[in-house]
């Protein structure tokens, strides 16, 4: 059974009179532990697809089964719980809370899940060490470099040990060397069994994925496995 199963997923946006078909009839199955890159021109629906996979958005039509469970019938709170427990997001613009330290940013998902403070501390410290951020634990985001910020964001995305990591252009705001580091970090997580789905504009990075999906005009036009 596939971890992720989209059948006939559409996502329409209404903009006044006109309608935009951001996703048109997308079928997609991804197994646990896969490494998938999603590429395609701007406006082709990559982010929309990722948002639906991450339960931040709902399809207008079609069905989405996550770990065998139909997600389209779930209520808001149930979806939130799945996001908490199963999904980790990494964004292009990091999305760190500016007033909180690296430590506190990484601890956020644990607090949202109600993990007790002492366990939280141990887990965050372990994550900081694993991501080479121990020295930066009490720095605020504006005191960190871009690469460090994205490492904090990745530590936060993985602190709940999610089954899936969804990364939307995680290297978009980084220089190529730092970007490569970040991608290697994500790949090492994938090597440990986490399903990695990454949107990227960089063909070189996209080629690294074992499975590559191409999008255009809201449709999946390519899906190749190396």
């Amino acid at each position: 059974m596939a971890l992720i199963e989209l059948v006939g997923v559409c996502r329409r946006f209404r903009l006044g009179e006109s309608e935009v078909m951001a996703l048109a009839d997308v079928d997609l199955a991804i197994d646990a532990g896969e490494y998938v890159s999603i590429m395609g021109p701007s406006g082709s629906g990559k982010s929309t697809l990722l948002n639906i996979l991450g339960l931040l958005d709902r399809p207008t039509a079609g069905s989405y089964r996550l770990a065998g469970k139909d997600t389209t019938t779930l209520g808001e709170d149930e979806q939130a719980q799945i996001r908490r427990q199963t999904i980790g997001f990494v964004f292009q613009s990091f999305h760190l809370v500016p007033r909180l330290s690296a430590f506190e940013n990484i601890a956020l998902p644990l607090a949202l899940a109600g993990v007790p403070a002492d366990e939280r501390k141990a887990r965050v410290e372990a994550a900081l060490a694993a991501f080479g951020l121990s020295e930066r634990a009490h720095h605020r985001p504006d005191q960190l470099s871009g690469g460090q910020r994205q490492r904090v964001a990745i530590a936060r995305a993985t602190i709940m040990r999610p089954a899936v990591i969804l990364a939307d252009e995680p290297t978009g705001n980084l220089d190529s060397a730092t970007g490569a580091d970040v991608v290697r970090l994500l790949e090492s997580l994938n090597a440990q069994g986490v399903t990695l789905i990454m949107v990227t504009h960089d063909p070189a990075l996209g080629q690294r994925a074992r499975r590559r999906i191409r999008m255009q005009d809201g449709r999946k036009i390519g899906d190749e496995v190396r």
């Binding site: 996550l66 607090a111 949202l112 040990r161 999610p162």
Partner: peptide, 22 residues
Amino acid sequence: MRGRVTARAPVKASDTLHFALR
């Protein structure tokens, strides 16, 4: 799915307060 079953809105009141304070 590896997610554990947790109670609804499991955030502790002390965390909410601390977050608000920050």
